[in-house]
């Protein structure tokens, strides 16, 4: 990266380190940090949306919808994450390809399953084998977002379902007394008030989600833990200009600091949101706030 990096074996100390930390391989590590952050930024709202949908469905008066909401939460919560990640993603990918195969290659006469091979026509491959590597990586990334959202959506659904039931019945009754329909009472009274009950559970989920990102490598997305392992491994002179012994401990220490800082910042932000949500609520926290102000 820097002009003095052409012959690293002559460098020492800080200048060596500055060259070492800016190799193409390290840039991959920095990119993976961004990938993880983007993944979290997309997954969290999508999972919350899934959770909200499932929690509302589980409360529905319409029986099949209620079954769907409750079935989704109990099944996904009951399956170990790692099994879900290994099985579900391959199944999802094959389902997409199978549908595309049916549409695009109606004349295909060979079976799709040949022994353990899963064979679809070239035009049905997702992404196409001719597409550049970044398309494959983006596709893998979106599969990851979808899978994370489904898993964490189920947990969020359970939290939100509980939170909806925790809103005092008297609030809904008052709404009904004012002549609001069920729908109006749900959106105007229940939803704004439930967040204060949901937030402790949701913040736990967020913390677990942050730490679950190493599961990404199972889906073929190279995350920070993968690169820390790869970069920290012993490097001999024959294959690199920057030979070093096993430096796993330093890379994992850096990861530790990264995750600790990240969770600390999350805690601070969540505490602020909690304070804001508590305002004017008929809870112990809301009461304390009111007394402090008076």
């Amino acid at each position: 990266m820097f002009s003095y990096c052409t012959d690293p074996s002559t460098l020492e100390g800080l200048s060596w380190l500055s060259c070492y930390l800016t190799t193409g391989k390290h840039l991959n590590l920095y990119i993976s940090v961004v990938v993880v952050l983007v993944l979290l930024a997309i997954t969290a709202p999508v999972a919350l949306l899934f959770g909200f949908g499932a929690a509302s469905a589980a409360r529905s008066k319409f029986l099949p919808l209620r079954w769907f909401g409750k079935g989704y939460t109990s099944i996904v919560r009951g399956v170990p994450d790692i099994a879900f990640f290994l099985f579900f993603v391959i199944a999802l990918d094959q389902a997409f390809e199978w549908m595309r195969h049916k549409v695009k290659c109606p004349d295909w006469d060979q079976p799709i399953r040949q022994g353990i091979d899963f064979v679809v026509c070239d035009a049905a491959k997702l992404p196409l084998s001719a597409s550049p590597q970044w398309v494959h990586e983006t596709y893998g990334f979106f599969l990851a977002v979808l899978t994370f959202s489904i898993v964490f959506g189920a947990f969020a659904a359970n939290v939100l379902y509980g939170a909806m039931r925790a809103v005092p019945r008297a609030q809904i009754e008052t709404a009904e007394a004012y002549g609001m329909t069920t729908r109006q009472a749900f959106w105007r009274i229940l939803v704004p008030q439930m967040w204060v009950y949901a937030l402790p559970g949701l913040s736990n989920l967020w913390m677990v989600l942050i730490k679950a990102t190493p599961l990404l490598f199972l889906l073929g997305v190279e995350d920070i833990v993968y690169w820390a392992r790869e970069l920290g491994g012993t490097k001999t002179e024959r294959f690199t200009e920057y030979p070093h012994p096993n430096w796993h401990v330093w890379y994992f220490a850096a990861l530790l600091v990264f995750y600790l800082c990240f969770t600390k910042v999350s805690e601070v932000v969540l505490a602020r949101i909690m304070k804001r949500l508590t305002k004017g609520q008929a809870t112990a926290g809301g009461e304390a706030q009111r007394k402090a102000a008076a």
Binding site: G24, K25, S129, A130, P132, R238, F239, T240, E241
Partner: peptide, 27 residues
């Protein structure tokens, strides 16, 4: 983007088994 190119074959490797296959400094 893929049109007009020869058939594309994707080669899978581990990238952690020098000297057979590994990831070099450039990544």
């Amino acid at each position: 983007a893929g049109m007009g190119l020869a058939e594309t074959v994707r080669l899978g490797t581990e990238g952690a088994y020098a000297p057979w296959n590994f990831v070099n400094d450039a990544g």
